[in-house]
Every structure is written in structure tokens, then in C-alpha cells.
């Protein structure tokens, strides 16, 4: 095994390096079945974090992991499953996407995989967004099953539809009361489809 390259913070000045046009538009406006996902990133004092960068990665409604390029250069047709959004001055982010479905053979309930980057965060954080309507799948999900109700709620998108169609809220609390569940995904023995 090679020794890995250590992480360093994304810092405060990534705005001209990482965000890209349409980074939150996983699907174009008006796409049938589109949902919006939005929320606020807050620090340990409850203050909005205006310089966080979130990435979302997901299956589509067909339960397939996208394998097509084009996440940076949106062509308006291909579902690439990848979003990258920076928080604004109020700590808010927003994206428009499709609902994820579970791949065949998956033990995990439908979810979006999330990475959180920020100034003051020396190593990014992983978390997940789950959806409350998948009652059975959520009950069987290996991650959700090991969490108490309060912790589990930090991973659950909250329906709050707006004028643009079905919407969900997912806040990220980096530290303290209501701290989001962040994940250590480094374990081996990952599930394979059967």
C-alpha cells in the first residue's frame, strides 16, 4: 500500500476554482419529477457558514449509478448525478435534481451522498440525505438502523414544497446541538450486488 496524500482545508478562496455554472442544476428547470433540495449550513455556534462547498452524488430514479460524463458541462439531457454548490452569504445552498432510487441489490435506502468542504475544515465530511417516504427501506438501512431517533433525523430531508415544485430541506449542522451525522466510510467489506 502506498501512503496516502493528506487532506488540507479547501480554504475561503475556492469560489473561482471549484463552483461552475449550473453546478446545482442536476436537471434543467421544468424537468418532470424534478425536486429542489435546499438548506443552511451552520457552525457550532449556530451561525450560518457562508463559505462552505457541498457536493451531492446520487443514483437516478431508475436506480442506476450514472456513468455518463458531462457533470461540469451540462448538456440539458444527460443525468450525471453530480451537483456542486457553494453556500451564499446566508449559509444557504440549493439544487434541483431527481429523486434517487436504490440500485438493485443495494442494502441502503435511496439517498444522496454528500461531501462538505469549508474553511476551518481540515478534512472534508461525508454525510447522506435520506427521504422520509421510503419507510420500509429506511427501516432496513444499515446506517439509519444504528442511529437513535434524534441522530437519524439529521439525515432526513424535510418536505417543504415551494412554487417550483416538490421541495425538501436538508440543513447541515457542523458541530454542537443537532450535529449532523457524519460518516466514516473507510471500512472494507463493502456490499456488492447479488
Amino acid at each position: 500500500m502506498l501512503d496516502l496524500t493528506p487532506s488540507q482545508t479547501v480554504g475561503p478562496f475556492f469560489a473561482f476554482g471549484l463552483p461552475f455554472d449550473g453546478g446545482g442544476d442536476v436537471v434543467p428547470m421544468g424537468t418532470p419529477g424534478a425536486i429542489t433540495l435546499h438548506g443552511t449550513v451552520r457552525d457550532g455556534a449556530g451561525a450560518a457558514v457562508p463559505d462552505a462547498l457541498l457536493e451531492f452524488w446520487q443514483t437516478g430514479p431508475d436506480g442506476r449509478v450514472p456513468v455518463r460524463p458531462g457533470a461540469l458541462h451540462r448538456d440539458g439531457r444527460s443525468f450525471t448525478g453530480f451537483a456542486r454548490v457553494a453556500t451564499d452569504r446566508a449559509g444557504d445552498y440549493r439544487l434541483r435534481t431527481l429523486r434517487p432510487a436504490a440500485p438493485s441489490g443495494a442494502r441502503d435506502a435511496p439517498h444522496l451522498a454528500v461531501t462538505v468542504f469549508a474553511r476551518g475544515l481540515l478534512h472534508h465530511l461525508f454525510t447522506r440525505v435520506y427521504f422520509p417516504n421510503h419507510v420500509e427501506a429506511n427501516a432496513a438501512d444499515p446506517l439509519l438502523a444504528q442511529l437513535d431517533e434524534e441522530r437519524r433525523a439529521t439525515l432526513m430531508a424535510v418536505p417543504d414544497g415551494g412554487v417550483t415544485g416538490p421541495g425538501y430541506r436538508f440543513d447541515v449542522r457542523m458541530q454542537g446541538a443537532g450535529e449532523t451525522v457524519f460518516l466514516d466510510l473507510s471500512v472494507s467489506g463493502a456490499p456488492v450486488p447479488t
Binding site: 449509478v65 440500485p103 441502503d108 439517498h111 451522498a113 469549508a118 447522506r128 457542523m174 466514516d184 471500512v187
Partner: peptide, 20 residues
């Protein structure tokens, strides 16, 4: 800047999903 931005609770160990 880590003072208010580093989680206080341990990371939850879970196997990566097929998505991840």
C-alpha cells in the same frame, strides 16, 4: 477556524453504499 467547524461527535462507521 476549526473551533466551531469540527464535529464534536465521533464519525459514524458504516460501509460505503453502492452510490459511494
Amino acid at each position: 477556524s476549526t473551533a466551531l467547524r469540527a464535529p464534536q461527535r465521533p464519525l459514524v462507521v458504516t460501509p460505503p453504499s453502492l452510490t459511494e
